[in-house]
Simulated assay, not measured.
Amino acid sequence: MSGPSQPIFRFAPSPNGYLHIGHAFSALFTHHWADALGGVMLLRIEDIDTARCRPEFVDALLEDLAWLGLSWPEPVRRQSEHFDDYARAAKTLREQGLLYPCFCSRAEIRAAAGESTDPEGAPLYPGTCRGLGPTGRAERLASGAPVQWRLDMERAIAAAGPLLIRETQPDPSAPLTVRPADPARWGDVVIVRKDTPASYHLSVVVDDALQGITHVTRGMDLHASTDIHVLLQALLGLPSPVYCHHELVLDEAREKLAKSKGSESLRALRAAGWTAVRVRKELGF
């Protein structure tokens, strides 16, 4: 598919709804970068959330991307087919003593967090279950209570040592820069969810390594997540790509487009008479 020195990019949508114009921008942006650097863009289906992701949305996104004139090598990696890969990575972290079981509900976390929030504005987990001793953890696990596994951030940072993020600006000719990561601001993040054997953070890091991704281009809404990703890469002995974060396409209220808000889909624009050429022109491609 590619030589060892060829840049490898990826566009990785989640099939939990129809793609909107913000997704189109991200896909076209990534394709533009891959073209400019003589690389290749892979497509990855990030469907670890089997409750929300549906086959019809996979079919729709493949159709939408082809309509935009994009292509990608086959086969396409689908996360739901690779849970064993994520389980092995979680096992490695567990064996390092870096994961602990958490039994808290969302309501309990909100109540305990107070005004403290993570970089995304969600309640910052206060480490409630980190204080459970071996007996308490064993009893709760034996009870069959819903459990997720969190990263002991303090121990993880100590184990990883200083962390640097290699990144560049949204221009293929921009120089590479290096900055320190600050994963501590995230607190003890979830690594294995209650409903699936991975979190977004774990699965994306494992996938990027397995697919040989050299460059990650994505929206600014994931900029802070890079702190967690370079930490996990260090802990798991995985390579760290170059990161580039682009501005987001906003709606009339200057808010981020989102499937959950019902932002107008590419399919709806196509039904309204938009052409792929018009979409590309509107987005600067």
Rank of each mutant, 00 (worst) to 15 (best):
D59M: 06
D59N: 08
A60S: 09
L61T: 04
L61W: 05
E63F: 05
D64K: 03
D64L: 11
D64G: 04
D64T: 03
L65W: 14
L65G: 14
L65A: 08
L65I: 10
A66T: 15
W67L: 09
W67S: 02
L68F: 11
L68N: 09
G69V: 11
G69I: 06
L70C: 03
S71M: 04
S71P: 09
W72F: 13
P73T: 07
P73Q: 10
E74C: 03
P75G: 11
P75Y: 15
V76K: 08
V76T: 09
R77Y: 10
R77N: 08
R78F: 10
R78Y: 14
Q79W: 10
S80G: 02
S80C: 11
E81H: 15
E81A: 12
E81L: 14
H82Q: 03
H82E: 02
H82C: 06
F83A: 07
F83C: 07
F83P: 04
D84G: 03
D84C: 00
D85F: 08
Y86T: 02
A87I: 11
A87H: 13
R88T: 12
R88K: 15
R88V: 08
K91R: 15
T92C: 08
R94V: 00
E95S: 06
Q96C: 02
Q96T: 05
G97M: 11
G97P: 10
L98K: 09
Y100C: 08
P101A: 02
P101C: 01
P101Y: 02
C102D: 14
C102E: 10
C102M: 11
C102F: 00
F103I: 12
C104S: 01
C104F: 00
C104Y: 01
A107R: 15
A107F: 07
E108D: 01
I109M: 08
R110I: 02
R110N: 09
A111L: 09
A112S: 03
A112Y: 05
A112I: 07
A112C: 10
A113P: 10
T117Y: 10
T117N: 08
T117C: 11
D118T: 07
E120C: 12
E120H: 15
G121K: 11
A122L: 14
A122F: 15
A122E: 15
P123A: 06
L124C: 11
L124A: 10
L124E: 10
Y125E: 01
Y125C: 08
P126K: 12
P126C: 12
P126D: 05
